[in-house]
């Protein structure tokens, strides 16, 4: 009986070992991921409609990417800081 119990315990521990913060980063990148998708998709749309302003659109897109990306990276570093 004890053996069965310890086997079950080992299985359970193996399934959930590690730090819950690992999941946190996964959750943290969902928002910026969606944001980047919308941002880049809309820029491509704009470029396709007006190829002549694509240079300006690209610059603005990179500025926006900088702002969006830092949110995901904040998730990464807080994972390290509070682990």
């Amino acid at each position: 009986m004890a053996l069965v119990n310890s086997v079950a315990l080992i299985a359970a521990a193996d399934a959930v070992s590690g730090n819950i913060a690992t999941v946190g980063y996964g959750l943290a990148v969902i928002g910026p991921g969606i944001g980047l998708g919308i941002l880049i998709g809309k820029t491509i749309e704009g470029m396709a409609r007006q190829p002549e302003v694509s240079g300006q659109l690209r610059t603005t897109m990179f500025i926006g990417i900088g702002f969006v990306e830092v949110l995901g990276l904040l998730g990464l570093i807080t994972g390290f800081i509070f682990s």
Binding site: G66, F67, E69, V70, L73, L74, L76, I77
Partner: peptide, 13 residues
Amino acid sequence: ATLAIRLMANMVA
């Protein structure tokens, strides 16, 4: 702060 963190965290990742 975000200028510094963006650069560092990208390289760390």
